[in-house]
Simulated assay, not measured.
Amino acid sequence: MVQTLWKQKNLINQFVKREVSGRYKGSYLGMVWSFINPLMMLIIYTYFFSVVFRAKWGGGAGESQVEFALILFCGLITFNFFSDIITRSPAIIVSNPNYVKKVVFPLEILPVTIVGAAFVHFLISFGILLVALILLMGVINWTIILVPLVMLPLALMTLGLSWFFASLGVFIRDIGQFLGVAVQALMFLSPIFYPISIIPENLRGIYYINPISHVVEDMRKVIILGQFPSWSWLLLGTSIGLITTWLGYYWFSKTKGGFADVL
């Protein structure tokens, strides 16, 4: 798997650029929307929760309304990285039938390009979050250097799932509709709009088996609170991510021979 992707790194890079630029193709502002969308999201949430709701996170964090908005935005950009990949994966092969039928093409790189494009948009949102931290909070914690380590389990899991759902989307076209609903449900089952501490004890098990919960919580720790992530989860999550990646790639490799017959 690693050798195959490394050999195709230049092609992957070209397709990632195409995916990023193609999202806003035909619009007047083009790539500028990649900056405007997360910036507007941050402004809206900051206003909504600091002025309208006057909400606080509690538990020693988010005592100010602005900090609450930044904590919320941090969780949202993390979850959006996951949701963007999962919801787009089922259609990536179906929307490119020429690569399946008419040319000899390494189809396994198509889901990878979705992950790469989502990562680019995540970096843009992350940059806006850093600027907001400086302007609104006046500080950046040194623990922010641990962000790549915290995101690694989620990146590995979504890569494996993107291969799996890209293949499944060829044979079961309804999977895309199902995933759209499932991702929305998962967003509310993840501690994005609220801390895990407010969840009743008898229900917390649901949140602890949700890997996104751990990543969202650790992202807030290293970016907003200046705390260390959960090292035990990083070890477990990375292991799960590696297994998911390998299984997804194995599934895709075994099923891609039947794509042409279905398409």
Rank of each mutant, 00 (worst) to 15 (best):
F105R: 01
S83I: 00
L156M: 08
A91C: 01
L107M: 02
V112P: 04
L136H: 08
T158A: 12
G116M: 05
L123P: 02
L136F: 15
P148V: 07
L149P: 00
I85G: 00
D84P: 01
I134E: 06
V103T: 13
F105H: 05
V104N: 12
T158G: 07
F119A: 15
G127C: 12
P153V: 00
Y99L: 15
L123S: 10
Y99F: 15
T87A: 13
V139N: 15
I140A: 10
L130K: 06
L135M: 12
M137V: 10
T143Y: 11
V115Y: 03
S83G: 02
L130R: 05
F105E: 07
L152S: 07
V115W: 04
V94M: 12
T113F: 12
F105P: 11
A118G: 09
T158H: 08
I92T: 14
I85K: 00
P106N: 13
F81G: 10
I93G: 09
S83D: 08
N96S: 12
K101G: 03
L154D: 02
N98P: 00
P106H: 10
N96V: 04
L123Y: 04
L123M: 12
N80Q: 11
V100E: 05
I109Y: 11
T87E: 10
H121A: 11
G138Q: 07
L133D: 11
V112T: 09
L135T: 08
F81D: 01
L110Y: 10
I85N: 01
T87V: 07
V94R: 13
I92E: 12
S89V: 04
N80L: 08
N96Y: 01
S83E: 02
F122N: 06
P90V: 03
F81N: 06
N96G: 07
T87G: 00
L146N: 06
I128H: 07
L129A: 11
V150F: 04
H121I: 01
F82C: 08
F119S: 14
S89D: 01
A132L: 00
A118E: 08
L154E: 13
T158Y: 00
G127I: 14
N98T: 15
H121L: 00
L152K: 06
V147K: 03
I140T: 09
G116E: 11
N80S: 05
M137K: 15
G127W: 03
L152V: 02
V120T: 09
L136Q: 14
P90H: 08
T158W: 00
V94W: 07
A118Y: 06
V115Q: 09
P148E: 13
I124V: 15
P111M: 10
T87Q: 09
F79Q: 02
T78N: 06
V120R: 09
F119Y: 12
V139W: 08
N98M: 13
F126M: 11
W142Y: 14
V150E: 05
V147P: 01
V94H: 04
V104Q: 13
I144M: 13
F122S: 10
M151R: 04
